[in-house]
Write a protein that binds this DNA or RNA. Structure first.
Lengths: 247, 247
DNA sequence: CGTTTGCTTGAAGTAGGTCAATGTGAGTGG
DNA sequence: CCACTCACATTGACCTACTTCAAGCAAACG
């Protein structure tokens, strides 16, 4: 169906970790049958909503966030093409976070039951999804570590490196530059900082020659130094798939 | 095998969410065949270690933590009886965190392959474990929210409430008091605070009549007020298990 | 071409950190 | 049973990384 060039991001991402047969690929492509577009800053759903479907991200960045009663906000996860949004809906009847488009996006909604089919027919895909869920936990742990014990400078370094590592999985041609369609207020809400201090700290990182900025793109200039500086581990490139069932 | 009274904590915990048949229970009990004791402050394993087995907690509290190169430490997870420790080992060859006993503990080690058996023979148990992995993500998200956007006072309130909610699952007779076998330095390392400020903040919470302390126990005096104060959600009591396969 | 939205920069305020002294059991050895 | 120690908790004084407030600016947009 899909040409090699614009192969589904989801398939592309999952294939990075395990070889999938025709049947498994068929299952995945069926999850992306329907398409829906959303405007920049539009909420896809809100925390507390009753949820029955998940989404595959086809295009654009979005994020999951929660508001505190008094208006403080925390962004807890950035979503990129190939990600599945709304997995938490499997464990709870109601959404625990809200999801918003950071820029114009295209999503493919599919019902929870679409996953049942995957679980029942492909042990290998089940193992992979399970592994991804566990990997996600590790990424949260890294963020907790950054927010609990690192300075603003280190947290920003962590954010940039993590973005690069993640995006490289689906953009194999990517080098050290990536688009950053987030306001500084949003970046602050990811890292638990104020927009003002994000601005000051990014400027300092730039002056010190660690990164550079141009037209909403960030370039990481001294990746090794930065990784060392914030003790960064790439959680995307190698996972243990040796125990997966054959099919 | 086990009498009703000292039924396995793992079985007890999982049974809270879904009815398990004899066979499934048998699988779980097999995971707790072997027992091993550890002293207070002893490390079970260290981040970076090659890991081939997981552990069921039989007795005592332990925690997962990571050190930064310069000695700062972040505790990322508290483990209690009935928890499975080391799930992350499924996604990576090497441990991503270290695990240490907060007090004398008893663990039941079992090989990764013990899980394979579960996956292959019980779809229902697989679904449950998957759901628990997702639920764990939500709990991490709550912690990220607390660390990113809440004051020390709110974070401590969150910690106490979360502990109560979690422990009530396996201790059905528990009311509003729980043991707290952690030093204030350890509590600080959980919440991203210094030991000194933990001391000051807990004292304030006590003076204000929210909690009381006695012999290493904490009592939550005004649970509703506290929950309101830190916008707490109990993630333990109700999960969506409606979609689970029948067996 | 005015309005809005986001970035920058500076000045002033504060939550929480660090340092240091003192207190207080719990365990240990004599 | 007492002295000694050691690990923790407490408390106060001082410090700083961050926040908040506020003003000015630039780019995007109707």
């Amino acid at each position: 169906m899909a040409s090699e060039a614009n192969k589904s991001c989801l398939v592309q991402k999952l294939s990075h970790y395990a070889e999938l047969d025709e049947e498994a690929i068929g299952h995945l492509e069926r999850l992306e049958r329907e398409e829906r577009s959303y405007d920049e800053q539009q909420d896809i759903y809100l925390g507390g909503d009753r949820r029955d479907d998940l989404h595959v991200v086809k295009k654009g960045w979005l994020y999951s966030y929660t508001d505190l009663p008094d208006g403080r906000r925390q962004i807890v996860r950035l979503h990129h093409p190939g990600d599945i949004v709304g997995f938490e809906g499997i464990a709870f009847h109601h959404a625990t976070t809200s999801v918003r488009a950071a820029e114009p996006v295209v999503l493919c909604p599919f019902p929870k039951s679409g996953l049942d089919v995957v679980f029942e027919s492909s042990p290998k895909l089940t193992a992979l999804l399970f592994t991804l869920a566990v990997r996600e936990q590790v990424i949260f742990v890294d963020l907790i570590r950054a927010m609990g014990r690192m300075s603003a400078r280190e947290r920003l370094a962590y954010l940039f490196l993590n973005l690069l590592a993640k995006l490289r999985i689906t953009n194999t041609d990517m080098t050290d530059t990536c688009r950053l369609p987030l306001t500084q207020t949003e970046i602050g809400d990811v890292l638990g900082l104020s927009n003002v201090y994000v601005s000051k700290t990014i400027s300092r990182l730039e002056n010190d020659g660690f990164i550079s900025r141009k037209d909403g793109n960030v370039t990481v200039l001294r990746e090794d130094d930065l990784a060392n500086f914030c003790d960064f581990y790439d959680r995307y490139s190698d996972m243990d798939v040796s125990w997966f069932p054959q099919s």
